[in-house]
Structures are given as C-alpha cells and as structure tokens.
Write a protein that binds this DNA or RNA. Structure first.
Length: 209
DNA sequence: TGCCAGGCCCTCTTTAGGGCCTT
C-alpha cells in the first residue's frame, strides 16, 4: 500500500449509465487525480464495460459510446485496480454523495471497500463561492477562472477540474481569512456548517492561526 | 423510449414542497 502524505487527497469522478445503482445503473468510466501539496502528481482513468448497452442519452451526455465500451475491462476488474489507487487517501468529488454511492456499490461488487473520508466540493463551493450564479462544475470552473482541461462529462477532465476548483477554494479561503493552511477535516466541517455561518466558522479558524 | 435517487438548501418553512446537483 502507498503511504499517503499529510496534505494529499484523491479527487474522483464517475461517468455512469444513470443516476442510481439501486435501479441497475453501473459505472462506465472512472477518472481520478492524486493531489499532493496543491499539485496533481498522479492520474487514473479507465473506461469499463457495464455488461449492457448504455442509453443514447448517456452516449450524448458523456461522449462515451457503446462502441468505445466494447472490449473494455469489467467494472469489477477496474475497481479492484482503482481501490489500490485510493488506498490510504481521503477523497473529494463534486456532489460527492452521488460518486460515493457508485464507489461503494462498485467496490463491493469487486469485493473491496474504501475506508477513508469523503468531502463534497459542491457543498464547500456553496459556502466559499456564494456569489456564483449556480454551483454546477462547469459554472464554478468559469467563475473561478480555472482553465478547462478537457471535455466536461468525461471522468478524468472533470476530476482534474474539480481538483483545481478544490485548490482554488483553499486559496480563496487562505487569501480572505489569512489562513495559511486549511485541513481536509476542516473543509469537511465547513461543508456541514450552515451556509449563513460559513464566514463565522472561517473567521474562527483564522483566529486560531 | 423514457423513467428511476438522494441529500442539501431555500422559503410562500419547520406538521412541506420543490429546485439544485450528480449521470
């Protein structure tokens, strides 16, 4: 198992055949980046064959076609490999509840499990970027002045841009509140603080510095 | 072909309803 550095996190994104594994939906692509000390140092991207044809809507939405999924490894094989990539790390995702459901579902089918903590960049963004028109990933990337690294709705590109959004929010907190280093656990706590009290919470962190 | 979920969050609220966000 890899040893995680203190200031590290894996940012991940799933493309799936639909919204709910409970209704038979499966992952079709996983993309993830390992961020250490504010720098992307490793990447993981794999298409996976769900064992059935995906809908035209998903083909259009993601750009991933049934033809592209032919001959790809099974979800179980890809997730067994991915479990090694995330071992020992905490994870971040945009609307993390969605990705966490698929992560747990697919890992279970691969006889694996994830033991780390999970934080949602969407919830953090609702507190840090309260001036954004909405909190879709694409809007936030534009709002924060982040360069697009690929096509939206492809797993690795979305994971990379979510990682840059994550770092952008950390930098914004640092600049506004003079907090030189905010910890993963503190960002998780921020995501749970009532939106109206986010400023108070961050000010309290600044006072402790 | 079109549908499915679930948690957050706001307000015309809290004994609720509906939009947002993910695919």
């Amino acid at each position: 198992m890899k040893m995680a550095v203190a200031d590290s996190v894996v940012v991940l994104d799933f493309e799936t055949s639909g919204l709910s594994p409970e209704y038979g939906d499966r992952a079709i692509e996983i993309g993830a980046v390992l961020v250490e000390h504010g720098v992307i140092v490793d990447r993981f991207q794999k298409l996976m064959n769900p064992g059935f044809r995906i809908s035209r809507f998903i083909e259009s939405y993601t750009g991933i076609t049934n033809e592209m999924l032919k001959g790809q490894a099974s979800c179980e094989a890809v997730m067994a490999e991915f479990s090694e990539f995330i071992a020992g790390h905490n994870i971040v995702a945009h609307n993390a509840a969605f990705d966490r459901r698929f992560l747990d579902f697919e890992l279970k089918r691969a006889n694996r499990a994830f033991q780390g903590e999970c934080c949602c960049s969407l919830l953090v963004s609702r507190r840090v970027y309260q001036d954004s028109p909405n909190h879709k990933l694409k809007t936030l990337v534009s709002h924060a002045g982040i360069a697009e690294t690929g096509s939206f709705h492809r797993a690795l590109a979305d994971a990379e841009m979510t990682a840059h959004l994550w770092m952008s929010m950390i930098n914004r907190i640092g600049e506004q509140y003079k907090i030189p280093m905010i910890l993963f656990d503190q960002l998780c706590e921020l995501s749970r603080v009532d939106k109206l009290y986010a400023h108070r919470y961050l000010s309290s962190l600044a006072n402790r510095c």
